[in-house]
Design a protein around this nucleic acid. Sequence first.
DNA 1: CCGGAGTATGTCACATTTGACATCGTTTGG
DNA 2: CCAAACGATGTCAAATGTGACATACTCCGG
Lengths: 107, 107
Amino acid sequence: MKRDRQARLERAGWAIGDATTFLGLTAEEERFVEMKLALARGVRQLRERRGLTQAALARQLGSSQSRVAKIEAADRSVSLDLLMRSLLTIGATPKDIAKLIKGAEAA
Amino acid sequence: MKRDRQARLERAGWAIGDATTFLGLTAEEERFVEMKLALARGVRQLRERRGLTQAALARQLGSSQSRVAKIEAADRSVSLDLLMRSLLTIGATPKDIAKLIKGAEAA
DNA sequence: CCGGAGTATGTCACATTTGACATCGTTTGG
DNA sequence: CCAAACGATGTCAAATGTGACATACTCCGG
């Protein structure tokens, strides 16, 4: 859903470097990325605060250490769904999460 | 990633009805669902406030009317990613989103 | 130095999500 | 009554995300 959109726009006849496209997309995309980064930081922070290893959290999530590493790195292969589930699993409250999101201002 | 986890846990030797598993999972799952519902409500609310039709929003999202309908219905086939992207596309600020999430208390 | 614990990164088969389309229901204005 | 506009629901091929595994890097205590 990232390069997809680009592909779609290109098919619709918009050049890749087109200013409108570029700015338009990234304004939103950037916020989205900022948000993921903020949540990822939250996961790491809470996990460490709980004294858990990535492997331990992975077990709780029914996942693997490598994926937890990617989660905390906000890897492009990690969905918001997984980030949220991770936060909830560690015990973050909706309030905690809201706070993380509010802290996600665009660069 | 829902029945998947169950399958995984079973393979790991945990009974389906196991109390810990059961409570542990659903407490979290429930919150997750509540959150999706809250965000879905937010999408519909903002869209209507902007006087947009589902088709119009779909165009902005590079998606289709049917998917927007599913988004607002918090259909199981809709990811948090898509919900968030929708909110950002309509113009929701991180603050707006944080508010929606805080409003997502477990039933 | 070594070894182990914890974390990072690439890859892949398999699972889920997605846009698109078809189709249906409901409302509204003529 | 009809037609147009809007929204809901099911289906599917293609796109994307996922757990698992292998492997590498970094610390740290011995």
